[in-house]
Computed example of a mutant assay.
Amino acid sequence: MTRALIISDSHGLTSEILSVRDRENADYMIHCGDSELDADADELDQFYVVGGNCDFDDRYPTEQTLTINGVTFCVVHGHLHQVKSNLLTLGYRAKELGAQVICFGHTHIAGAEQVESQLFINPGSIRLPRGRKEATYAIMEWETSSNITVSFYEESGEPITELFYNASF
């Protein structure tokens, strides 16, 4: 079983990132931007990271594409893809890259949704959540692309079961 930690919009938090990272012991870790940390910050060590609209270190890429255990990810912050309006632009970009899973932030609203053969995951924000009171992050687990589970947790590690999502391609 492959396990990926997905986090976003931490806006300067450091000990919280370390706490989540150490507790979850994920195989892969993704930060979808707006960390407001330097690109070489210790807290982001081993994370695939992208820059958001509040990240001013120009060493951050605006997107990353990675393939993990048969699943291709497109990782962006979302501010350059108008994600506050809809997911069409982001979905088109992910198709260009051949990505099935799209990880993004910017809206601070936690959720997962499959649209045709694409799975969109927004882990929410561990600092400034919107749409709910809990600060959140996500864990994606899979053995094959036909059995994907996305689980959401409060920053403290408590599960938010009503947000859990199952997908397959």
Score class of each variant (00 low, 15 high):
Met1Gln: 11
Thr2Leu: 10
Thr2Gln: 08
Arg3Asp: 05
Ala4Gln: 01
Ala4Ile: 07
Ile7Ser: 14
Leu13Phe: 13
Glu16Ile: 11
Arg21Pro: 11
Arg23Asn: 03
Ala26Gly: 07
Ala26Met: 06
His31Leu: 11
Cys32Gln: 10
Cys32Ser: 13
Gly33Trp: 02
Asp34Leu: 00
Asp34Glu: 00
Leu37Ser: 13
Asp45Thr: 09
Val49Arg: 08
Val49Thr: 15
Asn53Ile: 00
Cys54Ile: 03
Cys54Pro: 03
Phe56Gly: 10
Asp57Gly: 08
Asp58Arg: 14
Asp58Met: 13
Thr65Phe: 08
Thr65His: 09
Thr72Tyr: 10
His79Phe: 05
Leu80Ser: 05
Gln82Cys: 08
Gln82Gly: 14
Val83His: 00
Leu90Arg: 11
Gly91Asn: 01
Glu96Arg: 14
Leu97Lys: 07
Gln100Gly: 15
Phe104Leu: 08
Phe104Gln: 06
Gly105Ala: 10
Ile109Arg: 08
Ile109Val: 14
Gly111Thr: 01
Ala112Gly: 14
Glu113Ser: 11
Val115Asp: 10
Val115Ser: 12
Phe120Asn: 09
Gly124His: 06
Leu128Asn: 11
Pro129Asn: 13
Gly131Ser: 02
Arg132Ser: 13
Arg132Val: 11
Arg132Pro: 08
Glu134Gly: 03
Ala135Asp: 06
Tyr137Arg: 08
Ile139Gly: 03
Trp142His: 00
Thr144Ala: 07
Ser145Gly: 12
Ser145Tyr: 12
Ser151His: 06
Phe152Lys: 12
Phe152Met: 12
Tyr153Phe: 10
Ile160Asp: 05
Leu163Phe: 03
Asn166Gln: 14
Ala167Val: 00
